[in-house]
Computed example of a mutant assay.
Amino acid sequence: MSDALLAGYDAVLFDLDGTVYHGAQVIEGAPETVAAVRSQGTAVRFVTNNASKSPEDVVAHLRGLGLSAEVAEVHTSAQAAVAVLGESLAKGAEVLVVGTASLANAVAAAGLTPVRRASAAVAAVVQGHSPDNAWADLAEACLAIRAGALWVACNVDATLPSERGLLPGNGSMVAALRTATDTEPVVAGKPQPLLFETAARSERALVVGDRLDTDIAGAVAAGLDVLCVLTGVATPASVLRAVPAERPTHLGADLTALTLPADELRIGPRPSWEISEGNVLTVRGEGAPLDLLRALCAAAWRTEVTTVRAEGDAAGAALTGLGLA
């Protein structure tokens, strides 16, 4: 495995939702791939924007899905949000929590006072995902934010991958408060680089994620290489149209790509596919559809042209398979 993508890094930083699992369903190949990373002596980190679970709960969930994990390997947006609060507030300051009990416990562990109702004493609002967040919670946060409280959002993911499909994420609830308060929150999690910088430490790290606007954007902001997988939010069409701040260095179908040669996964031209540039990207050749997507991304990102067409049945079938026909 000396030429495998994972061999070039000291640590691999895994996103969870949409990359390792969909809710209670593990993504095929994830346990074996994480085990392969460990067997190479490469450090494993789990970096998640989901603030609904404590690191201990994340570990229990991963182990229940057949993956080995330790609490020290888990880095959550809740931890990042509490770090922001700790830097901004005096010890004992009241923080209105919109989120799970584990988020409130993290606030308390930082020497701050978690509350659930707005008052003149509330210095900050911290908002993280919880399936139990309701209008009443947003109403209390709205009052506190309008009164001048610091507003920290654990993340702004609009959707949350699940075994049933995409569900409303914390970002959707943040959007409601943004509209109600005409205020922008401080965002602690991805795409801000803090989570990745903390998890990577001083190691040469590779980020693996499924979402362009958080996983990939956060990695780019932190100056880290990133493998985008297509098991969650990102699609071939969205990767092709990615803005510069959201462009991965490598592209794979799923986590098992980590064990493939790095050169096969890197965004760039492919000998099996010819792409003529102009007002339209014209595709000729025959080969793996994902190889075509890697080559198309290189051309589209360089030229800013994202309209494609095929010449020949093989090229047409490949574009159709990618949803780009």
Rank of each mutant, 00 (worst) to 15 (best):
G189L: 05
L212F: 14
D213T: 14
G218L: 05
G218A: 09
D210E: 10
A199S: 13
F196W: 15
E184N: 11
R211T: 15
S202W: 01
V187M: 02
G209M: 14
D215E: 11
A200V: 09
E184V: 10
A199T: 12
V186R: 14
P185S: 13
K190L: 07
P191Q: 01
R201T: 09
Q192F: 02
V207Y: 01
A205I: 04
Q192M: 12
D215F: 10
D213K: 06
P185E: 10
A188G: 11
A219E: 08
F196A: 07
A199P: 13
S202M: 06
G189A: 07
E184S: 13
G218S: 10
A205M: 06
R204M: 00
A200H: 01
A217D: 13
D215K: 07
A200F: 01
S202Y: 00
T198L: 10
Q192E: 15
P191C: 03
V187C: 03
T214I: 12
G209K: 13
K190W: 10
L195Q: 15
V187F: 02
V187R: 02
A199C: 10
P191K: 02
F196R: 04
L206P: 06
A217F: 14
L206Y: 02
V187W: 00
E197V: 11
L206N: 06
E184M: 11
G189Y: 02
A219H: 02
V207R: 05
G189R: 02
T183K: 09
A217N: 13
I216L: 15
T198Y: 05
S202I: 02
P193R: 04
L195C: 12
T214V: 05
L195S: 08
A188R: 01
D210T: 11
R201P: 04
G218N: 07
V208S: 08
D213C: 14
A199K: 08
R211D: 05
V207D: 07
P193V: 12
E197D: 11
T214L: 08
L194Q: 13
A205K: 02
R211E: 08
E197W: 02
K190D: 09
E197N: 05
L212A: 01
T198I: 10
E203A: 15
P193S: 12
R204I: 00
T198A: 11
A200I: 12
D213G: 02
T198N: 08
E184T: 14
L206F: 03
R211V: 04
P193C: 09
P193A: 13
E184P: 00
